[in-house]
């Protein structure tokens, strides 16, 4: 049996469009490191259902591969890594918005 790749629940905030992640205590955070790292497949499906049900807060919730890091979950794929930061051509998005929080 193949090992389950850990996941986070992510999507975009309805109003701003910002990338958000679901936390253990059912908040949506802008910081990937604060996301709940889900290491069990059945639990992942449940958490996705919970995330997707919050239709007034978040659009397009999905499960993204992640891994455990020293400061919390880290993205596993480069697309998800870009989503944690923002574009590479301007200092826009999370790379500046999250700097002082």
């Amino acid at each position: 049996m193949s090992r389950f790749t850990p996941k986070v629940v992510t999507g975009n905030a309805l109003i701003e469009g910002d990338v958000v992640y679901l936390t253990v205590d059912n908040r949506w955070t802008r910081s990937h490191a604060e996301a709940e790292l889900i290491e069990d497949e059945a639990h992942a499906q449940l958490r996705l259902l919970h995330g997707a049900s919050q239709r007034q807060l978040v659009v397009g919730a999905y499960l993204a591969d992640a891994r455990r890091g020293p400061n919390g979950p880290e993205p596993a794929h480069f697309r998800e890594a870009f989503r944690t930061r923002g574009p590479s051509n301007y200092p826009h998005g999370k790379q500046v918005d999250l700097r002082h929080v």
Partner: peptide, 20 residues
């Protein structure tokens, strides 16, 4: 819902992209 709204926003040029 988003499913209802999505085709309406697309008809008016509004996409949801990677960061915004």
């Amino acid at each position: 819902t988003e499913d209802e709204f999505r085709p309406l926003r697309l008809m008016n040029g509004v996409y949801l992209q990677l960061h915004a």
